[in-house]
Computed example of a mutant assay.
Amino acid sequence: MNALDEYRAAARKRGVPEDLLGRALRLARPRLELRSMEGSDAPVVGQYGGHPQLPPDVEWTGFPAFIASVDCAAVPVGELDIRLPEDGHLLFFANNSEPSYVPGPTQEGRVVYVPAGTATTERAPSEEDASYTFEPYPLRGRLDRFMPDNNHDIADQETVRLIHPYLLDHWDETMNGELTLGGYASVIHHDPAPWPVTDDDSFVMLAHADFTFVDTPLSCAASWLIRPRELAERNFENVRVDFQSYM
Rank of each mutant, 00 (worst) to 15 (best):
D200T: 04
F213G: 13
H208D: 06
D215T: 00
F203I: 00
T216M: 02
P228L: 08
S223A: 11
T216H: 06
D210Q: 13
C220T: 05
A209M: 06
D210L: 14
R229A: 10
L218Q: 15
P217C: 00
I226L: 11
E230S: 14
A232K: 15
A232W: 08
V214K: 13
S202L: 02
V214M: 12
S219I: 02
R229P: 06
S223Q: 10
L231W: 02
H208G: 07
F213C: 05
A207L: 09
P228C: 00
D200F: 03
F203N: 07
R227N: 01
S219M: 09
S223L: 10
C220G: 07
D201N: 11
A209S: 12
F213R: 03
T212E: 15
W224A: 01
D210S: 14
T212M: 10
R229E: 00
R227T: 05
A207P: 08
R227C: 00
E230V: 00
L206G: 02
A221K: 05
D201G: 03
F211Y: 00
V204G: 12
L231M: 04
L206K: 11
D200N: 08
R227I: 01
P217G: 00
A232V: 09
L218T: 11
H208Q: 12
T212Q: 15
F213Q: 07
A222Y: 10
D200Y: 04
D215S: 06
S219W: 07
L225W: 07
H208W: 00
L225E: 04
A209D: 15
M205R: 14
S219K: 08
S202P: 04
P217I: 01
P228Q: 12
F203K: 03
A207K: 09
S223V: 05
D201E: 09
D200Q: 06
R229M: 11
A221C: 14
S223K: 04
C220E: 12
S202E: 03
C220S: 06
C220D: 13
V214C: 11
D200G: 06
S219A: 04
D201M: 10
S219Y: 11
A222G: 05
A232R: 15
L231Y: 02
V214R: 07
V204I: 14
C220M: 08
D215V: 01
A221G: 09
F203S: 04
V214I: 08
H208A: 12
L225M: 10
D200K: 11
D210T: 13
C220K: 01
D210H: 13
L218G: 15
D201P: 02
E230K: 15
S219Q: 13
C220A: 08
I226D: 05
A232N: 08
S219P: 09
A207Y: 08
H208V: 03
T216F: 01
I226A: 02
